[in-house]
């Protein structure tokens, strides 16, 4: 659905008399499949917005190429515009007009006729639960309502792909959960959704696949589960008395599903396994068989932050 190769963009900015070049995006290759929620995860300044703005034809890339919904970004930007929707990070509604007016206008900018535009606006208002506020000025909306209007604007022409730049930034937890539901609904309707986020939990819970971006480069790409498994496997913490720890270690060390075994000071084992869910019953059975009592067993799955840390040497929470 989206395929990019070597997409690049630098900005020249002036600080006083000095010219500085910022390499905002340095060679991004992406493959986004039809009907998935694809997430771009990275800290502020990673180049997420710049990449999205290139894909949405708002700025010209310095190098590289891309095909979006079958249209070539460089040769046929007009066709790309018809096939995609884009919702900017900073908002896109005008204080003094109403949601309905904005929706009708936006549909008409896509060449849709007046009557059809009105019907679409009506449908979008209902779908995003905005009918009640439809004729109030945008400046009276809450953050969550306004964001929903903006997303409705982005898909008013039924695009095949919609780009959402940080759709939940600045929303309270409830509006955020609501927005996740809206985004899943878009996927259910067959749309390909490309979001950016700097929230780990959002990338984890919402996205089918993610690309982790840092300093203008994609440092990792895959499903959230796959990425986490790839870096460290899952960890089982087995709580044991000091007395039995040695014997348990001997028993488990030779098991095929245990990739790595460490003893924990003060009793207990730390097992690195491929998949905790299948390893737990086997560990339990093995220890039970040998008559060893265990105090606790705990599955620790690596987080996306662990992935980010492994790939960049920094924690995303800190950057």
């Amino acid at each position: 659905m989206i395929e990019t190769r070597g997409l690049r963009k630098s900005f020249r900015s002036r600080a006083g008399r000095q010219h500085k070049t910022v390499d905002a995006v340095r060679g991004v290759d992406l493959d986004v499949a039809e009907g998935e929620i694809f997430g771009f995860l990275g800290p502020n300044g990673a180049g997420k917005t710049t990449t999205l703005r290139m894909l949405a034809t708002l700025i010209a890339p310095d190098g590289g190429q891309a095909t979006i919904a079958g249209a070539d970004l460089l040769r046929d930007p007009a066709e790309v515009r018809r096939r995609i929707g884009y919702v900017a990070q900073g908002g896109s509604t005008w204080d003094d007009s109403t949601a309905r007016e904005e929706l009708v206008l936006h549909a008409r900018m896509y060449g849709i006729g007046k009557a059809d535009a009105r019907r679409r606006a009506e449908r979008a208002l209902a779908a995003f639960q905005l009918t009640e506020y439809a004729d109030r000025k945008c400046k009276t909306y809450s953050g969550g309502q306004r964001r929903r209007v903006e997303i409705a604007l982005g898909i008013i022409h039924d695009p095949r792909i919609v780009f959402l730049d940080e759709p939940t930034t600045g929303l309270d937890p409830q509006s955020r959960a609501h927005m996740w539901d809206e985004i899943r609904r878009l996927r259910a309707e067959g749309m390909t959704v490309f979001i950016t986020t700097h929230y780990l939990d959002e990338a984890d819970a919402l996205c089918d696949r993610i690309a982790i971006m840092d300093h203008g480069e994609v440092v990792a790409e895959g499903t959230p589960t796959g990425l986490k498994r790839e870096i460290s496997g899952e960890v089982l913490l087995v709580g044991l008395d000091v007395a039995t720890t040695g014997q348990a270690a001997q028993l488990l060390d030779t098991e095929p599903y245990v990739a790595k075994l460490e003893t924990v000071d003060g009793g207990g084992l730390r097992l690195t396994v491929d998949e905790g869910a299948t390893a737990i019953p086997q560990v339990l059975r093995r220890l039970d068989h040998a008559g060893l009592a265990l105090n606790s067993i705990e599955l620790h799955r690596p987080s996306l932050d662990d992935v980010f840390l492994t790939k960049t040497g920094r924690s995303l929470r800190e950057s």
């Binding site: 929707g85 884009y86 509604t93 936006h106």
Partner: peptide, 16 residues
């Protein structure tokens, strides 16, 4: 003011 509100960018993603 329109630039700041994002209205221009919103127009520029359409084929208008």
């Amino acid at each position: 003011a329109e630039l700041r509100a994002g209205v221009i960018e919103r127009s520029r993603v359409t084929p208008v």
